[in-house]
Nucleic acid binder design. Structure first.
Lengths: 338, 338
DNA sequence: TCAAATATCTAAAACGTTTTAGCAAATTCA
DNA sequence: TGAATTTGCTAAAACGTTTTAGATATTTGA
């Protein structure tokens, strides 16, 4: 068990001061007029003994950690994990590391996680915020740490965020169903006041009302996939007239597919479906499923570049940036009659 | 932008010493005979000013960070993300936090990531190791940091690991295909010497040779899903006699399903399939796919409990623990004729 | 009543860096 | 030749904790 070597060891063994070593380490040798000969000697020695500066000590001194805290709802959801992956890659390119975690959309857990991140002095945050965290996030910002929200925002909070145009996307998807001839279109969403869900609902409502069709909204109390399936089954039992469903998220659609197969309903003949959030499954499923596809890479890029500009204090405008990204409706014929 | 309050501020404002505050903070008040009255006063004050100790400074002093570094191949792969999720939850329960990252199975990237983790003084590591990292991991262990490998191991390295019984699992899956009447069973794997892949191959070979059947092994050079699909299509074109395929991983099976649908082959009539690693898709796909399901929760539990016991120096046996977990063959009738 | 024991608290070093301020020697310039 | 400048380096403080080794005041015991 070898002990780690410190900057003091390096300095002592070379018979020079810590200061000099530190300057060389930070590439300030030129500026500080350290002779090339000495620089070489020090660098060679560091190489030889495999010296690695302690970023802990460095962070303590500088107040910077080069770490970004990323909090998503559930890292095992393909939508979030692909955003996480993209953010991670972009952050690394810019010299930042990512610490991520799953909030499970639980206010208290998230509050604890924020406290933990703040204790560890992360430099900035990218958060998919559960409800009820306005105060905590406000505090974060006041303490000088930049925060970028993604996927959704907190209406009461003036801060940077990157979202998609939920209402417009839902409107388009619903209109597509209407144009395909469906008359009784249900909207299956979750039992939550999250703004992105409300926006999707308005898009759906707008499309229906423009065509004078009536609404069938089902709010699922989501606990797990099987329970959701049961709720959908009983909803369909009650509303026999429904001939199409628009699912507000990918996991709801998965539960929905199970429900439909359980009820033996034929897609797209007896019932048409569209889902929010693309998923590999939807491409391969028979019939394949038309979806509103969120550009995860773009979301990641916008979020990270916004955060980086705040970190570098470049952000020209001091007022919060609200970035809204368009989605693509991926039309896969077979889940909808043509 | 409020400045963070430090232990010094607390001590000064209360007119007592830092030491006392620290003892109270660490619950050593009783032991250090600090009067209850003072303890209460200090705790109340901390609450009031919302004092949070800097874990950075604490770590610098104690040498412990309470962070575990988790390195998986790809956080957006459902298999890895569900392990990550479970490990994260268990770690939090035990007062540890997780930093995770994706290695992309690239030796160099992983080497850099290890260096980064080590710089940040993580207390321990859980790693899905790419090939060629024997030395780096050896160094890690020598430096006193416990390492647990998961999913695969490095044959040259004597260390703790948690894997599944790959050979036996593959043997069972292949035997199941044979018993279902298939005669020309292909094994589609990746172009790699990773031991878990080799073990799966041996299981396949063993089953075939016991029944005197001939082998059809295809090693995919995996770059992306579409290229893999093409390779599988051309493989099937060349080997018309194949009537069943055993895919060595879930993502190969996904590419395989695309290939089969492209070729218009009917499952399970013209071709039977089985995959390694379960996936939500396989349950819902029509026909649903029989898979070798890895118990991700058990893997996570074993890995974290092994690591924790090392961290607490509890590990009775000092010699490496090699934990092998059985899998379950989830038989979904429809991808195999009966 | 006075030494011993106990209760209550603290000074200062240490962890490994960065950075400010400055010193001595060598070189340049007039 | 000697002042001014440049070159090449360093001492020490600071970041926010934990912990060792006491110090002082109070209580106890005979």
């Amino acid at each position: 068990m070898k002990k780690k070597i410190s900057i003091t060891d390096v300095a002592q063994q070379l018979g020079i001061s810590i200061t000099t070593v530190s300057f060389i380490l930070n590439g300030r040798a030129q500026e500080k007029r350290i002779s090339d000969k000495l620089v070489k000697r020090v660098l060679d020695f560091m190489q030889e003994v495999n010296y690695k500066p302690s970023s802990l000590a460095r962070s303590l001194r500088t107040g910077k950690t080069n770490i970004i805290g990323l909090m998503v709802e559930d890292i095992s959801d393909p939508f979030f994990s692909s955003i996480a992956r993209a953010i991670e890659a972009l952050a690394y390119e810019n010299g930042y590391k990512i610490i991520y975690c799953s909030t499970e959309n639980a206010t208290d857990k998230t509050r604890e996680l924020i406290a933990m991140y703040s204790e560890r002095h992360v430099d900035g945050y990218i958060i998919v915020p559960p409800e009820g965290l306005e105060q905590d996030i406000e505090q974060l910002i006041e303490s000088g740490k930049p925060v970028v929200l993604i996927d959704r925002y907190l209406p009461a909070l003036e801060t940077d965020y990157v979202i998609i145009n939920n209402e417009e996307s839902a409107y388009q998807a619903t209109t597509h169903l209407i144009n395909s001839g469906y008359k009784n279109i249900a909207f299956v969403t979750i039992d939550s006041l999250q703004p992105q869900m409300l926006d999707r609902l308005s898009g759906y409502e707008k499309a229906l009302s423009e065509h004078g069709l009536s609404q069938f909204v089902k709010e699922i109390y989501y606990k797990n996939s099987d329970q959701a399936t049961q709720q959908i089954v009983s909803f369909l039992d009650r509303k026999q007239q429904i001939d199409a469903i628009f699912f507000a998220t990918n996991y709801l659609c998965v539960s929905g597919l199970k429900a439909l197969s359980q009820k033996g309903l034929n897609i797209p003949g007896q019932i048409g479906i569209v889902s929010f959030d693309d998923y590999e499954l939807f491409e391969l499923y028979t019939p394949s499923v038309t979806t509103v596809s969120q550009p995860t890479n773009t979301i990641a890029e916008e979020a990270i570049s916004l955060l980086l500009s705040r970190l570098k204090k470049l952000a020209k405008e001091n007022k919060p940036q609200k970035i809204v990204i368009p989605t693509t409706l991926i039309i896969r014929k077979s889940s909808i009659k043509s």
